[in-house]
Nucleic acid binder design. Structure first.
Lengths: 131, 131
DNA sequence: ACTATTTCCTACTATGTCAATAGGTTTATC
DNA sequence: GATAAACCTATTGACATAGTAGGAAATAGT
């Protein structure tokens, strides 16, 4: 299940794309348009800056801005950054799952196939497709 | 993310299918073969009985048994029963989400399409495909 | 009837994540 | 120097996850 972080973040990206006139867009405006708590968006947007998805400018006249054209972003990369992983099943979320049954597990191939389908969809979908 | 409930439940179904000789299969055996806590499986299996996926028989010689042939079960129906919903996004999980932005939301169509793909995959996959 | 084995049932719990909120500091513009 | 914005750290309530614990009821064989 995609959380609000991913969903809100995606909407911020769309908002930035739609209102892009070259200048920086203040978060306050985005929060109002999207009807999301500005305070909460700060957390999300911070992650997006750190992840290099957008850039921010402090001070009066500041705000946020996309660093690439909308067609250069995929929904998958945006969600992965915010959700940590878009993995459908813990067994595939690399790291901590060193499941001893991996070799004989009857469900693993299916999960892999499923995960592939999910990834294919999300990484083929561009931000520009949502405008 | 599919939780252990759904994943373990699916493995129980596979185990029941593989070891089906007409008699009832005790949970103890399944727990040992699958290396999952029997106590925890009790909770999961109970849901599956209530949902009509399998049937149980108490007492000595008792256990659990499939009620249909493996090719008559879809992975989707098994997971839906155990997970409550396999919805990828809260906005689509019917009930509580009466989102006021539904009409103008730019992301909703994508989530619907995504959800459709997920459902198509899981409901076309049969239990018998995993044996 | 007794015993063993199994499901069935209720309750509890530790841990972690989600979705925020709160309040302040720094940075840039006019 | 006032204003407006990003940036930063910390805290919180609610809920879900992944179990554990202990026993009651049902069934089969002896």
């Amino acid at each position: 299940m995609i959380s609000t972080k991913g969903r809100y973040g995606l909407r911020v990206m769309i908002d930035l794309a739609q209102n892009n006139d070259g200048s920086y867009i203040p978060l306050k405006d985005i929060a109002e348009r999207q009807e999301i708590s500005k305070k909460y968006l700060e957390i999300i947007v911070k992650q997006m800056v750190e992840g290099g998805l957008i850039k921010g400018l402090s001070g009066k006249g500041g705000g946020y801005k996309l660093v690439k054209k909308p067609e250069k972003y995929t929904v998958g990369e945006i969600l992965t950054l915010l959700e940590g992983t878009i993995c459908s099943v813990a067994c595939l979320a690399d790291k901590h799952y060193d499941c001893p049954r991996r070799k004989k597990c009857e469900t693993l191939p299916m999960w892999k196939e499923f995960d592939g389908i999910v990834h294919d969809y999300l990484y083929s979908k561009k931000l520009s497709d949502l405008l």
